[in-house]
């Protein structure tokens, strides 16, 4: 499938901001499930965009802007050709041993309830891949999906307790479950194309990957109860959301307590290609 993505990230300030810094993980790389045809980033203020590769192999951009300015918009736009690989990912940059992906982070720490849940969800299964599918199904069953992007990010155990969350909360819980089962797991941020009535919409999305010996890394999206297919664009990988968040930003000025930062994610269309 050929997908066009247009992602606009705008910040508005109640008072003119003096300066801002942003770190972006918004650029996909090629792998077995996708080929990037064109990609660009544009910042609507005078700045120098610098590109480096982060430790996990993500393409990272950063820039600083000098004020005063009342709004700041970063436009990410591009085109990707995607392929259905049944969720199996290969051809990615892998620098770390699997142990790193067994490590708990504050956002993906498990508690007794999560550990029990993970164990009972896959009790009947022996093979790792089947266990992972079972956990995904059970989690999908348990959690109410909430697509409100402005909702605050919570730790896995809190969201688990509420039985509701954003796709990224589900990814965190899934990672916590997998790691509790001693299966290396990680967080993926990207885009997904969704059929919404007659219209195809592209949304920012998050899911998990877990490691299966013999297959390699396999994607699991518990919010949609499926492994990623050609409607997914894989952008960044991290131990949790903090490591793979599309934008992390800070600024000085812009009003004392009256911060008015919003993340607008406007999407363009997706088209199927026959």
């Amino acid at each position: 499938m050929r997908m066009r993505v247009k992602h606009e990230i705008s910040y508005r300030y109640s008072e003119p901001a003096k300066a801002a810094v942003q770190k972006l993980l918004v650029t996909p790389r090629n792998c077995n499930s996708q080929r990037v045809i064109a990609w660009r980033i544009e910042v609507d203020r005078d700045s120098r965009l610098r590109q480096v590769e982060d430790a996990l192999g993500n393409i990272m951009h950063s820039f600083t802007v000098d004020g005063p300015f009342e709004s700041l918009t970063t436009l990410v736009e591009g085109e990707v050709e995607t392929f259905d690989t049944a969720g199996v990912v290969s051809g990615t940059i892998e620098r770390f041993p699997l142990e790193l992906f067994l490590r708990e982070t504050p956002l993906t720490a498990s508690n007794e309830q999560i550990r029990d849940f993970a164990k009972s969800a896959c009790a009947g299964e022996a093979a790792t891949l089947d266990r992972l599918h079972a956990v995904m199904a059970a989690l999908h069953e348990r959690m109410q999906l909430n697509r409100d992007a402005t909702q605050e990010i919570e730790c896995a155990d809190v969201a688990f307790d509420k039985q509701a969350g954003h796709p990224l909360d589900l990814a965190h819980i899934y990672i916590a479950c997998a790691r509790a089962l001693d299966i290396p797991a990680r967080y993926i941020s990207g885009y997904v194309a969704r059929q919404d009535g007659s219209e195809a919409r592209v949304e920012a999305h998050a899911w998990a990957e877990a490691f299966v010996a013999g297959l390699g890394w396999v994607g699991f999206d518990s919010s949609r109860k499926m492994s990623p297919d050609d409607s997914y664009v894989r952008v960044a990988v991290g131990l949790d959301h903090l490591g793979a968040a599309p934008v992390r930003a800070a600024r000085t000025g812009g009003g004392d307590e009256s911060m008015d930062i919003q993340l607008h994610v406007a999407m363009a269309r997706a088209q199927s290609q026959n």
Binding site: R95, E99, L102, E104, L239
Partner: peptide, 25 residues
């Protein structure tokens, strides 16, 4: 030292004080 099995690698990589951000720099 990890390759030589002197220190177990999970002790390093699962340790929150190990910063993957610093790897290779």
């Amino acid at each position: 030292i990890l390759k030589a099995d002197v220190v177990p690698s999970e002790l390093v990589y699962r340790n929150p004080a190990y910063r993957p951000e610093m790897a290779g720099r």
